[in-house]
Amino acid sequence: MGVHIEQVTRVQKAKVERYKVTRLYRAEKEWEGIHPVNVETDVYEDNVELPIGSWLVPLAQPLGNLVATLLEPESVCGFVNFCVIPAEEGKELFVSRLIK
């Protein structure tokens, strides 16, 4: 997609915002081979260790707004909606937002 990403090469401590799915609605009608998903999430801060191999996607880049739209769990145009990022009610998503 032309988006710059960085891979973590050493374990790093980080403060992040995490997403916990509080409500999930899966469309009954199939669209393009999937049942789109809408979620509501609670966001909370957490201190984590980013393991080697984790991916960081800086938003300060030409396609940063696109990245934010795709990774935002409640976005109707995002990866959760199109089942690229799996979501389950009561569970955390594997995507977090880094707090600098």
Results as ranks from 00 to 15, higher is better:
2 G>Q: 01
3 V>R: 14
3 V>P: 11
4 H>G: 11
5 I>D: 06
6 E>G: 12
7 Q>G: 09
9 T>Q: 11
13 K>A: 07
13 K>E: 05
14 A>Q: 01
14 A>G: 00
15 K>N: 12
15 K>V: 07
16 V>L: 02
17 E>S: 08
18 R>F: 06
18 R>N: 05
19 Y>A: 06
20 K>W: 05
22 T>G: 06
23 R>I: 11
28 E>S: 11
29 K>G: 08
30 E>T: 14
30 E>W: 00
31 W>D: 10
33 G>W: 04
34 I>K: 01
35 H>T: 04
35 H>L: 07
36 P>H: 08
36 P>K: 05
37 V>A: 07
38 N>H: 14
38 N>F: 12
40 E>H: 12
41 T>N: 09
41 T>Y: 11
43 V>W: 11
43 V>T: 12
43 V>C: 14
45 E>Q: 13
48 V>A: 05
49 E>V: 00
49 E>A: 06
50 L>E: 02
55 W>S: 12
55 W>Y: 13
56 L>Q: 02
57 V>L: 09
60 A>L: 12
61 Q>K: 07
61 Q>T: 01
63 L>M: 14
64 G>D: 05
66 L>T: 14
66 L>K: 04
69 T>A: 13
70 L>N: 00
70 L>T: 02
71 L>Y: 11
71 L>M: 12
72 E>K: 14
76 V>I: 15
76 V>H: 14
77 C>M: 15
78 G>H: 03
78 G>F: 13
78 G>C: 04
79 F>R: 14
79 F>P: 10
80 V>R: 05
81 N>G: 07
81 N>I: 10
81 N>C: 13
82 F>V: 03
82 F>I: 07
85 I>H: 04
85 I>D: 00
85 I>Q: 00
86 P>E: 10
89 E>V: 09
89 E>C: 07
89 E>H: 06
91 K>W: 00
92 E>Q: 09
93 L>E: 02
94 F>T: 15
95 V>Q: 08
95 V>I: 15
95 V>T: 13
96 S>H: 12
97 R>F: 14
98 L>V: 04
99 I>T: 05
99 I>H: 06
100 K>Y: 10
